Computed example of a mutant assay.
Amino acid sequence: MYTKEPELYIHPLSYSGPYQKAIEVAEYYGFKVIPPVRGVSSIRKDMEPRNIFHRAYYLDPVQKILMSDYINSLNAPKSTQHMLCQTRNAQKKDGGGINLSIVGNSKSISEALIIKTAISILEEHNKNNFVVELNSLGDQNSYRLFLKDFILHYRKNINEIGDCCRTHMKNNPALLTVCPVELCREIRKEAPRPINYLSEASRNHLKSLIEYLESMGLQYRINNDLIGEDYTAGTQISFVIKENDSNDPCEQKILARGERYNRYNHNNQQKKVFPTVGISIDINQSGKEEYLEEGARKNPDLYLVHLGTEAKRQSLQLIELLRKKKIQIAQSLIYDDLSKQIKRAEYMNVAHTLIIGVKEAREKTVIVRNTNTRAQEVVPIDKLIGYLRHVHRL
């Protein structure tokens, strides 16, 4: 039977309700279900999104505060990493969905994994034509320099912009990026772009994420208007998933929105700050939900161990392949440490371990190792499903 991992600060729950299908996909990718995080007294009303267009593009700031408080309440070491899943507005007829969060990991695999999970969830709900839009604001210094030049550009064109944008310049310059007025949109086309102000570390982070998206064959484009409101200053990456059914990006329906908010620290209180990536996925189903304490769980059939960045890229594709074939697998893509991966595999007592290293990623193969006998065989990925079905009866 499944053995609980050591230092498990979050005990996952079993879920039944309108988002059952989405939850199953999220759990397959390693997310643990927690109940919806409720309000806390420290939330300020002025943190609510102030613009309906902006609200469509960004994570709810209140949700980010709640998640921050929830993680702090666990009293877990800062090195602990969590993958969390919770439902949203299940009692409402419209506006419901699920939120995914990866906490404690600062590398681009977090964005790649959360985007891939979101797309798999949307595909399960018959959404199959996507484009991912993303942007990077870099570190705080990069963002500050960009914002200074961005505001200066609008001041030079103060006589051309509408009253709405003049108000935004005073109160919240980030809202200039979502003004729907045609004249303001034209001025915005000539405005400075945050991507041109990135530090080397931020450029490398964005480059790494793009390489993950390309390896998965996902359509993407840079959207310079994904900036974030003042309370998300310091957001390193913003991204949305849109239905790719229109030639005009402004008319495409947003299906999911996400951000990395590494430096988020609400109310300026001195608390532990965990690097976090979150995404909110719209499913628009409603119904009664039930959360139960998990009992004994069946062991996964396989555990996937990776070594290196190329192996992570290959692993993302392999996980989806196995999911569609209904072969259970566990993995720890957010970990780089080989010993931690092996330790998790041992606790789960899996029968077989799949290993992808640098050589295997290059040759598109995988090592299948018997956990008990240590016997292993190298199998081409395009023949892996047949091998597992025939040899190991999975």
Rank of each mutant, 00 (worst) to 15 (best):
T3D: 06
E5L: 14
E7W: 00
L8D: 09
H11P: 01
S14Q: 02
S14I: 02
S16N: 07
K21E: 13
K21H: 08
G30H: 10
F31I: 08
P36D: 06
R38L: 15
G39A: 15
G39N: 15
V40E: 12
S41N: 15
S41Q: 13
R44Y: 00
E48R: 14
P49R: 14
N51V: 11
R55N: 06
Y57H: 11
Y58R: 03
I65F: 11
N75R: 06
S79E: 14
S79K: 14
L84H: 01
L84P: 01
C85P: 02
Q86R: 07
N89G: 03
K92T: 09
K93H: 11
G95A: 10
S101Q: 03
I102Y: 06
S108W: 03
S108R: 08
L113E: 02
I114Q: 01
V131D: 01
E133K: 08
E133Y: 10
E133I: 01
E133N: 05
L137T: 11
G138D: 06
N141R: 10
N141M: 04
R144K: 13
L147I: 13
R155Y: 03
N157T: 02
I158D: 05
N159R: 09
G162Y: 05
D163M: 11
A174Q: 02
P180F: 15
R185E: 10
P192R: 14
L198A: 07
S199Q: 04
S202D: 15
R203C: 14
L209K: 11
L209C: 15
Y212L: 01
M216R: 09
G217M: 08
Q219P: 01
N223D: 14
A233N: 07
F239G: 00
I254N: 06
L255Y: 13
R263A: 07
K272P: 02
K272T: 12
V273F: 06
G278H: 00
I283H: 06
N284C: 12
G287L: 06
K288F: 10
L292Q: 08
R297V: 07
K298I: 15
N299H: 11
P300V: 11
D301T: 12
L302W: 04
L302K: 13
K312C: 08
R313C: 09
L316N: 10
E320R: 10
K324F: 07
K326M: 07
Q328W: 04
Q328P: 04
I329S: 04
L333I: 12
L338P: 00
K340E: 12
Q341W: 04
I355N: 05
K359C: 03
K359G: 04
V366W: 08
V368F: 04
N370P: 00
T373H: 03
R374C: 03
V379H: 06
D382E: 14
L384V: 02
H390K: 15
V391Q: 12
L394R: 02
